[in-house]
């Protein structure tokens, strides 16, 4: 006798029984004990065929290779920078992964990136002890200047991006901001002061209501109600960055509505 005890997209608490019987398999954030499958986090239950998984509603960021994150330079070593990743683990970025320019032996690394600078970087490698290697030598990775940084729960990042980037491109369009979302939950906004404020409010709203359905429409309504004047489109660097942001958003469509 096997049965699923969890409804699709219902809130489950840690230790809640999701299914009974050996016909089902424990997916992400669940565990099996005897013939029962239990949830391991507070989240939404997704019975998908025989596999039952739980999507967390909140939770710490677990670094994965290939993730684009926004970090802060916290130290300069002999041949690289130490970067705060907004997790329990700081990451190391080697000079050769940071720039393709030739660096002289005695060159001052703080001239390239100083302590306190923020960077958009990509994780290349993560060890079992969560030691992280970073790179900045790919398109769409750069040092941040100006704008504002906000932090949200990393589990809400897929909702902020939306299916195929629908949510984030909508916010970009309506606020005239350039937005870069790091998988670690750090978001960089740059635009007019009103636009930045509105984008920040919209993103905080998504974070608050991430478990609800029809969020893209709700946010659209919110943005319509609080319209800001859009700046004139420039056809130079700022547009380039935006298209990079879109590219990125499409990579990470998982977890959309």
């Amino acid at each position: 006798m096997s049965s699923i005890l969890v409804q699709d997209k219902s809130v489950v608490v840690p230790g809640e029984i999701l299914a009974e019987g050996m016909d089902y398999l424990p997916g992400d954030n669940t565990y099996r004990e005897n013939d029962k499958i239990y949830s391991k986090v507070l989240g939404l239950g997704y019975p998908a065929g025989r596999v039952i998984k739980v999507t967390p509603l909140a939770g710490p960021y677990v670094p994965k290779p290939g993730d684009k994150i926004i970090g802060k330079i916290i130290d300069i070593a002999f041949s690289g920078w130490r970067v705060n990743t907004s997790t329990a683990y700081s990451a190391m970025m080697n000079v050769k992964d940071a720039t393709s320019r030739f660096i002289k032996k005695e060159e001052d690394l703080s001239k390239i990136m100083a302590i306190g600078d923020h960077v958009v970087v990509k994780i290349t490698n993560v060890t079992s002890q969560n030691l992280i290697d970073l790179t900045m030598k790919e398109p769409g990775l750069y040092k941040i200047s100006g704008g504002r940084l906000i932090t949200i729960d990393s589990q809400k990042v897929p909702r902020v991006i939306g299916k195929k980037g629908s949510m984030i491109s909508q916010i970009k369009e309506k606020t005239g901001c350039n937005i870069t979302v790091g998988q670690n939950g750090v978001i960089w906004l740059k635009g007019s002061p009103e636009g930045e404020l509105l984008a920040e409010k919209a993103i905080k709203l998504i974070e608050q209501r991430s478990h609800q359905e029809g969020l893209t429409d709700k946010i659209e309504k919110f943005l319509e109600e609080n319209k800001v004047p859009l700046p004139e489109r420039k056809s130079n660097g700022s547009d380039l960055k935006e298209s990079e942001g879109n590219e990125y958003a499409e990579e990470t469509e998982e977890g959309g509505q």
């Binding site: 608490v13 840690p14 230790g15 954030n29 565990y31 239990y38 391991k40 986090v41 507070l42 989240g43 967390p56 509603l57 909140a58 939770g59 710490p60 729960d153 589990q155």
Partner: peptide, 11 residues
């Protein structure tokens, strides 16, 4: 702890 999303076997 549950609200913070820490993996937990039970409450």
């Amino acid at each position: 702890l549950a609200h913070a999303g820490i993996p937990m076997k039970d409450l």
